[in-house]
């Protein structure tokens, strides 16, 4: 379908994008026409009657109204808006009716990343991989505040609410990689709550599913941990260059004494790191907000080990 970037809209990449764009440009042209009339009226009338010599006594004509004219500029816009409403309603219904043969992915939003659960147990963070030409249904919920799942190229957006499911769906029409953004203000790192939708061919998708999201095989634990640090979105809150962000920097902390919010001090070791990943609320570093979500259930032992190995390697 429509994959080229137009003057105002980004390239479209889903089955509904073409419908939305057609309506969008219809409104653009209708608006330009109406605005042209108004602008012409201002300029033409303004110049023509500027400082005009009025009637001999200085009065101006006492035109009170014109029923015919006023009806015209009530009815014509009314017809226009009815067209736009009905058109918009039809496309909206199309956007809301999920096709039958659909693949379901569960989306969980939390500060400040997206996590995707596939039916066969695959879990990814900030990366949604889907096959081309297959409708994908997203069943979404949030762990904390309201987020909004927005893929501009697909022309879809849906708020993601805590304690409730919302839905959206799309069918990608072109292979490529598209931005996911959070469109509902959700706090400090709202603008970094970004992800990608990677649309691949059916064959590539199968391969990807089988090989798993990350390849641990052959990689050292440190390399695996480095990869996880990005894919599990640790880096959205923790820097590794010594500067603090939402959470403390993680380089060179192993073996050091650290003050906790409660006042006591702990030595950073493997146990402390493990606890901080799986039960982050149990000991908060002094000076930081207790905002880290638990990774309980999102990481297996091997992955936790790899992350710890990676953190230990940071100087």
């Amino acid at each position: 379908m429509d994959t080229t970037e137009t003057l105002l809209l980004p390239p479209g990449g889903s089955t509904i994008a073409g419908d939305v764009d057609a309506l969008f440009y219809f409104i653009v042209y209708a608006s330009i026409a109406i605005f042209g009339i108004v602008l012409f009226g201002i300029v033409y009338l303004g110049l023509k009657y500027r400082g005009r010599k009025a009637a001999a006594d200085g009065t101006t004509p006492g035109i009170t109204h014109s029923t015919r004219l006023e009806l015209a500029w009530s009815i014509i816009p009314a017809i226009l808006v009815i067209i736009v409403f009905v058109w918009g309603f039809n496309v909206y219904m199309k956007m809301n009716i999920i096709p039958g043969d659909v693949m379901e992915v569960k989306v969980t939003a939390q500060k400040w990343f997206w996590s995707f659960d596939y039916p066969d147990g695959v879990n990814t963070v900030n990366e949604l991989v889907v096959p081309l030409g297959k409708p994908v249904k997203l069943l979404m919920s949030s762990r904390d505040v309201i987020h909004s799942f927005y893929v501009p190229a697909f022309r879809i957006k849906m708020d993601v609410l805590p304690n409730r499911y919302t839905l959206t769906w799309f069918e990608a029409t072109a292979i490529g990689s598209y931005d996911i953004m959070c469109a509902e203000f959700c706090g400090d790192r709202h603008s970094e709550m970004l992800g990608r939708v990677r649309v691949v061919s059916e064959r590539e998708y199968k391969e990807w599913l089988e090989s798993g999201t990350e390849t641990a095989e052959g990689a050292t634990p440190v390399d695996y941990g480095r990869a996880l640090f990005r894919t599990k979105a640790c880096h959205t809150c923790h820097n590794v260059d010594g500067t603090s962000a939402v959470g403390p920097a993680l380089n060179g902390i192993v073996g050091k004494q650290r003050p906790l919010a409660g006042g006591e001090r702990v030595t950073v070791d493997e146990n402390y790191l493990r606890e901080s990943i799986l039960e982050p609320q149990s000991s908060i570093a002094a000076g930081y907000q207790p905002v880290m979500p638990t990774y309980q259930g999102m990481l297996n032992d091997k992955q936790v080990d790899a992350l710890i190995a990676y953190i230990k390697s940071l100087k």
């Binding site: 066969d120 147990g121 695959v122 879990n123 798993g212 999201t213 990350e214 390849t215 641990a216 095989e217 799986l278 309980q296 259930g297 999102m298 990481l299 297996n300 032992d301 091997k302 992955q303």
Partner: peptide
């Protein structure tokens, strides 16, 4: 607390 099995990356 029960960690969920991650069937994909366990080799």
């Amino acid at each position: 607390a029960e960690p969920v099995e991650d069937s994909t990356s366990d080799v």
